[in-house]
Amino acid sequence: MLIQLLTRTATLLLSLAVASILIFAFMNVLPGDPAEVALGVGATPEQVAELQARYGTDRPLATQYLDWVAGLPQGDFGTSFVTGAAIGPQIVDRFLVTLWLVGAGMVIALVIAVPLGTFAAVRHRHPDGVLLAGVSQVGIAVPNFLAGILLIGLVSVQWQLLPSGGWVPPAQDPVEFARRLILPALSLGLVEGAVLARYVRSTVLNVLREDFLRTARSKGLRPYQALVRHGLRNAAIPVVTVLGLQLAVLLVGAVVVERVFVLPGLGSLLLDGVANRDLLLVQGVVMVLVLAVLVVNYLVDVLYTVLDPRLRAVA
């Protein structure tokens, strides 16, 4: 168990190192020096040289890379060539917003997907189960931004129940925070819920065919009791895998949803960075997004060994 944890952790660290190299390399093979890019076409060679010297981009790439990476663990992402501001604090602020959005979206998705997917599986021979499977199929096809726009149109404009956008930190006003989080989280979570419901349905269908479920019933459990006590935990294992993989999808969705709901998250920071040609900022945001995906998948791996004793036992 401990050895497995250590190998997994080592793998995580290695993946992070590789990812940081790739991201750094990718940003730096783009034609033009970051300083040139930041200054735009009208800059004189002297201005460029001055900026290069100021931000150290005249140094060898390897040195620049090591310098950048060394700062990351302390949350130092360097200083923007464009605004001259430290990038780290911005990323941290924005990351919290995205974390709330994605986290709430994921919770909504699970709250929808687990009961509905299970129901659709148990009732797969009945019209209601088939209908539910069909509805989730349609849900998958809806893009997040469309869900967002529809929700704004209905809930904010038509019924005037909730604000259509903006952000209030939870510490400042928890109620207003929640009111503003609901719609963007729903735009993300409803669509994701449809995707997950399909996975839940198919894994529960597989579990329903398992011999051990029949054994559970042969002991005197009713079908639904057998499913709840013996089936769902077995079904959770493949669903957790998908959950980890879907996080990347959810982060991409968050970029769009943050735009629609004017949320100051990582997604909008990324888009701002691209618009301002702030390469170091873009590099930092991408690194954080990759970090989030890798860490969650690492946690999923650890969760596996908690869920499934077969993975624990390497004597």
């Binding site: 011999d211 054994t215 019933r217 005197g220």
Partner: peptide, 24 residues
């Protein structure tokens, strides 16, 4: 029926490798 199963009548199945819950 479920009140009888496992109490008044019970069954041992053909395939021992898959008949038990792997997570319990």
């Amino acid at each position: 029926r479920s009140a009888l199963r496992g109490d008044t009548m019970s069954m041992v199945f053909q395939e021992p490798m898959t008949a038990l819950n792997p997570l319990m």
